[in-house]
């Protein structure tokens, strides 16, 4: 049973190196960003999310729409437990996993094998669990003997294969993604798509930030449209997509 519940959630970022003086004359509402504002003590703040209220339940596939800076990434980080609401409350039931930054924690001087352990442990697996699945990861990545070489010697494609193979061994109950991943040359890409679809189908809740209408309509059952950190529209994909893409 996975469930997400946001009650009146706001997230404000304090900006410490901006002098509030230069902003007193105009509290701007930046065209495509969060709102710049000042708090009670006169410090500059960016309001990235503003009074969000929604629930996401088991089985839902939610697409997040909105322009760059609308708050999609902040919302994904909030859902993954990195950020905490500055106001309101959030409850997250279920193991959260994200496929947002696949390069995370990869050290270029370390070998492919070492990187499997680094990345795996950062994802919350124990050494024993990684060892148990090592063969599977190695086979999937098709890296062969290159596994014992430092990652800096890898081609871009090999690098992505390594990152992808490790990142997708997790089977989270709540999966967060920023656009669909596509990796490698043709033969690997097919295999990767199959793996990714498998991960997505096994997850109970998917939250996918995207700019692509095709993707949204293919994967999602519900769409949430954010603008300036507020929900503009929340409903079935067909309706929200119609308003968002025909604007």
């Amino acid at each position: 049973m996975a469930h997400l519940n946001l009650k009146n959630v706001s997230v404000d970022f304090p900006i410490f190196n901006a002098t509030s003086r230069s902003l007193t004359s105009h509290l701007l509402q930046v065209a495509t960003g969060g709102r710049l504002d000042k708090d009670a003590k006169g410090r500059v703040q960016v309001q990235a999310l503003d009074g969000l209220n929604f629930e996401i339940s088991d089985g839902e596939r939610v697409g997040l729409l909105g322009h760059n800076g609308a708050g999609k990434s902040t919302l994904l980080r909030l859902l993954s437990g990195i950020y905490f609401p500055t106001e309101g409350s959030i409850s997250i039931e279920g193991r959260v996993g994200s496929l947002i930054d696949m390069n995370l924690g990869i050290e270029s001087e370390a070998t492919g094998r070492e990187n499997i352990f680094i990345r795996g442990m950062l994802l919350g697996l124990s050494k024993a669990e990684i060892r148990a699945r090592l063969e599977e990861i190695i086979e999937f990545s098709e890296l062969g003997d290159f596994l014992e070489m430092p990652v800096r010697t890898y081609s871009n494609g090999m690098y992505m294969r390594l990152a992808f193979s490790v990142a997708t061994i997790m089977r989270p109950e709540i999966l967060l993604m920023d656009e669909w991943l596509s990796v490698g040359d043709e033969s690997f890409a097919d295999k990767a798509q199959a793996r990714l679809s498998e991960v997505v189908s096994e997850t109970k809740i998917l939250v996918l930030a995207t700019h692509s209408r095709t993707l949204l309509e293919r994967i999602c059952t519900r769409a949430i449209w954010l603008e300036h950190g507020k929900v503009v529209m929340d409903g079935p994909v067909a309706e929200v997509a119609k308003s968002y893409f025909h604007k």
Binding site: V96, S98, I100
Partner: peptide, 9 residues
């Protein structure tokens, strides 16, 4: 920083 902003460690 990069770890903290990507993972809830």
């Amino acid at each position: 920083e990069s770890l903290i902003k990507q993972l809830p460690l």
